[in-house]
Amino acid sequence: MRRTMLFLPGNNAGMLANGDILGADSIILDLEDAVSPDQKDSARILVRNALKYLNYRGCEVIIRINDIETPYWEDDLEAVLPLKPDVIMPTKVSGADYIHRLAAKMTEIEEKNGMEVGKTLIIPLLETTLGIENAFEIAKADPRMAALYLGAEDYTADLRCKRTKEGTEIFYARTRLVNAARAAGIEAYDTPWTDVDDMEGLQKDTELAKALGYTGKAVINPRHVDVVNAVFSPTEAEINYAKEVFAAIEEGKRLGKGAVSLRGKMIDKPIVERARQVLENARAIYGGEF
């Protein structure tokens, strides 16, 4: 369950120390854009020590490593992978070859360290026009693939257009990415909302992402976590309806009915699947029986 993936700068000791108390389902310890080239060594060692000594309880840990075209990415992997982060996030992924190269390096490090191969997953950041076009091929590139994640800032720069709050310019990328992810049977995560103070805009943007099929959204400020978590959590009405769906199915079985309806609408396979997802998410978020 990743409603929120919160970015934390890899060289910021204070933020790394408090990563698990900010309410996000996942935290992304960032070795890439948040770290200047002259501090890459420092951030890598700090993040490695955070993984080694801090206990991020109940919070998934993702490491965003540097681009495969830089001299840093292999050192990043060598430092962090032996400490078993949940996910590695590569950046500027434009094709399946990138994932093949990354996965091979991960396997090499895992074997060298006597680790279980394939335990750490991959969520790539798609932020180029070519990456969006190749989204399905990327999504199927390796068994480690857990999701696709859209990065709209670099994408719009590559598209040579302005990034707007309305997001018209990223509509194609959003729909293409989520469709590719779903077709490959993995999750899809939306680009962060970059205006820290515009909470109303954040709410609308998050609701749009959910309406398009996204399972969660990256956030760049802890203040955004609650809004995004709330949008991606099932509401009481959704949970009650999902329960009614299963109750109606049980009642139909008891009465020997072939087709069952609820509130005047026939319960077909997509409705059951949606209800199952709502209850599954409710269990993951709130715990207990649903």
Binding site: A13, A17, S42, I45, L46, R48, N49, A50, K52, Y53
Partner: peptide
């Protein structure tokens, strides 16, 4: 924290 102290010392020595 101790993990930060260790990281910064290692970085400076390297």
């Amino acid at each position: 924290l101790d993990c930060t102290i260790r990281a910064r010392i290692e970085t400076a020595l390297l």
